[in-house]
Simulated assay, not measured.
Amino acid sequence: MPITTIAFDADDTLWQNEQFFRITEQRFADLLAPYTDAPDLNDRLIASVTKNLSFYGFGMKGFALSMVETALDVTDHRVPGTVIAEILAAGRELLSYPIETLPYVDQALGRLQETHRLILVTKGDVFDQERKLAASGLADYFAAIEIVADKNPATYARIFARHTDGPDRTVMVGNSLRSDILPPLAAGSYAIYVPHDLTWSYEHAEEPVNEPRYARISHLGELADAIARLEAVR
């Protein structure tokens, strides 16, 4: 019973994403520099984003609203309306950055599409994720696309039941231990971790230890061999 389905994360697994949020964070700090000397400005922004996940979800919109909330908070509501407008504009710019696929993506998807069912499992704002997928040119590789509000074991169980031959014949591939690795393992599938140089602190977690259904690779060019190794120990 070989692995028949490969599920992929999107942001920072197939294309660059976090680097544009880092650029926006720096723009945010520059805009507020004349109005606050808070040494923990970035930490307060990330805390606001994390707190607001249950209200706004993941993605650009929640990030932009959290920047506004943080700006008001750290300046005791003294920040000018013109600066708030520039902060919102910086948030909108997240929708205009070019989509840059990561190394080996096309080669890996093209090769594995011939032998496996490929599906995409990404979280965030539907409009933004659909825009990035269309701009990437990768949509045709996938037999199914799931854009979800969050990634947890129940989410993966539902997706595996709908699109795969079962979790025990599915592997999830992604750059986030918290979202792409631990939940699908808990749902009964295999998981392959592809670290990215930039990963949001919220997504950090400890790697699985002594887990035969888990593997780590350096880039997607190593994916086919990693899957073969996982199948060998089934």
Rank of each mutant, 00 (worst) to 15 (best):
residue 86 E to T: 02
residue 91 G to A: 10
residue 74 V to A: 06
residue 187 A to R: 10
residue 207 E to S: 09
residue 182 L to N: 13
residue 163 H to F: 05
residue 13 T to P: 10
residue 25 E to Q: 13
residue 81 G to W: 04
residue 41 L to F: 08
residue 159 I to G: 01
residue 34 P to H: 10
residue 85 A to V: 12
residue 130 E to D: 12
residue 181 I to P: 02
residue 228 A to S: 11
residue 217 I to G: 09
residue 69 E to L: 08
residue 208 P to T: 04
residue 224 A to E: 15
residue 180 D to V: 00
residue 90 A to F: 05
residue 17 N to H: 11
residue 144 A to L: 14
residue 202 Y to S: 03
residue 62 G to A: 08
residue 93 E to S: 15
residue 163 H to M: 04
residue 184 P to G: 06
residue 34 P to T: 14
residue 119 I to P: 13
residue 127 F to T: 14
residue 105 V to R: 09
residue 97 Y to F: 13
residue 224 A to M: 06
residue 42 N to I: 13
residue 204 H to Y: 11
residue 51 K to C: 10
residue 59 G to E: 03
residue 158 R to V: 05
residue 132 K to E: 09
residue 196 H to I: 04
residue 219 H to L: 14
residue 46 I to Q: 11
residue 201 S to H: 06
residue 60 M to A: 15
residue 210 N to C: 03
residue 33 A to D: 09
residue 16 Q to T: 10
residue 135 A to Q: 12
residue 105 V to L: 02
residue 35 Y to G: 14
residue 63 F to H: 00
residue 61 K to L: 10
residue 113 Q to I: 04
residue 196 H to M: 06
residue 63 F to T: 01
residue 112 L to W: 02
residue 153 P to Q: 05
residue 154 A to N: 15
residue 97 Y to R: 08
residue 56 Y to G: 07
residue 173 V to F: 03
residue 32 L to Q: 03
residue 70 T to P: 07
residue 84 I to K: 11
